[in-house]
Each structure stands twice: as structure tokens, then as C-alpha cells.
Simulated scan of single mutants.
Amino acid sequence: MQNLIKQGVIANEDSWQLLREAEAAFAADADVIVPLERFLQLSAAGDHQGGLAVLLAPDSDPLALQPHLAALTLIAIDFPAFADGRGYSIARLLRERLAYRGELRAVGDVLRDQLSYLAQVGFDSFAIREDRPAAEALEGLADFSEQYQGTVLKPVPLLKRRVSN
């Protein structure tokens, strides 16, 4: 996967192969990110020898992953269009309600303008669109110094963090 920002830096290497089609073929020892339906099948079979991660579409039910969360090292959430914000809700649900602590990756139509907001709801890696340089997008993580509302990164709202003189 190219154009990847991970933990606040541009990642030079990434072994994960994103497969958007449930029936896509791959090597038995490959590190793959597969759609939810395929992930559940492969997990039940238990015969995949490489790394196994899941791709959640905007209409996927993240609660289906609950029994697998402890073993999952990576969950990718798809943003098929810049204006589709359902992935933000999925990320926040995974981080806050389901206590997922592994890597949470935004994939699809991911642009600099979104990075700060994506990080606030729990994403820690971002697959930037191939037509945009990751170095420029990385600057998006520092676009805002404060958030008014409580977020995954800063659960206490700004009003309650205010120091009185």
C-alpha cells in the first residue's frame, strides 16, 4: 500500500494487501485486508497462514467483529467518497464502545482535509489517495491545535479543560 501515513510519519513499508472484492484470490501466506464477509469466512476456517485484517464498508456492522477484536491487529475503514462520513462513526464506535486498540486505517478517498478529524475519532493510519502526496497530507494532522468537543484523543471537552485564573 503506497502513500501511507502511520503513527504520524510516512511509512516506507507496508506488507498489507488491500482486497476490495470478496472473491479476490491471494496467496495463503499473504498479509491481506479483506471485506467483512470474507474475513468472517476465513476466520471461521482458520487456515490462512498470513496476516488477516478486515475492510469495513460504510454500511458494515462493526459489532460483527466483537468476538475477533482482541486478535485483530488491523481494521481498515473505507471512505468511498470524501463526503461520506459514516466511517467516522464506525471508528468512534470501535475505539470507545468496543475498546479496539489495534491499528485503525482510513482507506479510499482520504485527503489532507480529513486527517485531523480522522485522528480525533481514533484512526492512527491513513492510506492517502494515490494522486496526492503523503508528505503534504501529513501536515493535515497538525491543522488544528484544539478541539472543542471531547474526542478519542482528548475525551474531556475544551470547556472542562479550561484552567481558571
Rank of each mutant, 00 (worst) to 15 (best):
2 Q>M: 09
129 R>G: 11
52 L>M: 15
79 F>G: 04
71 A>L: 12
73 T>G: 11
126 F>M: 13
115 L>A: 04
116 S>L: 13
164 S>Y: 14
99 A>K: 15
97 R>A: 09
105 R>C: 07
64 A>E: 07
61 D>M: 08
48 H>G: 07
127 A>D: 08
135 A>P: 01
64 A>R: 15
110 V>N: 12
111 L>N: 08
82 F>A: 00
89 S>Y: 14
104 L>Y: 04
92 R>N: 06
127 A>H: 14
71 A>I: 02
150 G>D: 15
86 R>D: 10
54 V>K: 01
4 L>K: 05
12 N>V: 03
160 K>N: 14
126 F>N: 05
145 S>A: 14
28 A>Q: 07
124 D>H: 05
10 I>H: 05
150 G>H: 05
73 T>Q: 13
48 H>V: 05
94 L>V: 04
31 D>K: 00
161 R>M: 11
24 A>M: 14
109 D>N: 15
95 R>H: 07
137 A>C: 11
57 A>R: 10
4 L>H: 03
66 Q>R: 15
64 A>H: 11
132 R>F: 08
113 D>K: 10
50 G>T: 05
117 Y>C: 02
79 F>S: 04
152 V>G: 01
120 Q>C: 09
134 A>T: 11
159 L>W: 06
50 G>V: 00
58 P>N: 05
50 G>R: 11
113 D>S: 10
142 A>L: 12
111 L>D: 12
5 I>A: 01
142 A>G: 13
53 A>V: 00
45 A>H: 06
98 L>N: 04
46 G>H: 13
45 A>L: 15
132 R>K: 15
48 H>L: 11
81 A>T: 12
64 A>C: 03
129 R>M: 10
53 A>E: 05
65 L>Y: 06
145 S>L: 06
94 L>N: 06
31 D>P: 00
150 G>T: 10
165 N>D: 09
57 A>N: 03
60 S>M: 03
76 A>F: 06
47 D>M: 03
56 L>P: 04
49 Q>K: 02
159 L>P: 04
155 P>K: 07
74 L>C: 04
36 L>I: 07
35 P>K: 14
1 M>I: 15
138 L>E: 01
25 A>E: 00
4 L>W: 13
71 A>R: 14
144 F>Y: 12
28 A>L: 06
118 L>Q: 10
138 L>Q: 06
121 V>N: 09
35 P>W: 09
32 V>R: 02
19 L>E: 01
144 F>E: 09
107 V>H: 00
111 L>P: 06
94 L>R: 02
25 A>Y: 07
142 A>N: 14
149 Q>P: 01
